[in-house]
Design a protein around this nucleic acid. Sequence first.
DNA 1: TAGGCCATCTGGTCCT
DNA 2: AGGACCAGATGGCCTA
Length: 133
Amino acid sequence: MKMLTSSCPGPGRQESAARRRLAANARERRRMQGLNTAFDRLRRVVPQWGQDKKLSKYETLQMALSYIMALTRILAEAERLGSERDWAAAHCEHFGRDHRYLPALAAAKLPGEPEPYGQRLFGFQHEPFPMAS
DNA sequence: TAGGCCATCTGGTCCT
DNA sequence: AGGACCAGATGGCCTA
């Protein structure tokens, strides 16, 4: 005797499948919302050249990568300079005493400057990911 | 109007 | 079996 299988969907089975699909859709929506929340948090800590337009997800990832690399370079420089005192002095020399928040600093445009300060200072630019063709 | 970006749905795959 | 993750398809919104 053959049992009922997926090749013979009864009304109950169809209903169950539809319910599971809807549940999966809802989970996927929540998952993507979580991902977008994470992107928003990342956007807030990453420099944004010109505050007018929100970075796209792709741009956010690129900017985060460039930013981390820039900060890594700064840390390496600090190590090279030796003591924290030397580093602080060098930092003030480069950035001025009142600049403590790097993203804002990096994104800031000086009057008459064509590009943001950080971009000029760090050679800060997009380093595109290899895109699948 | 074309192109870019995004949200959502959907089916497939892998893991527990 | 069910959940998480992923990628493709689709349609909506916005901007140049």
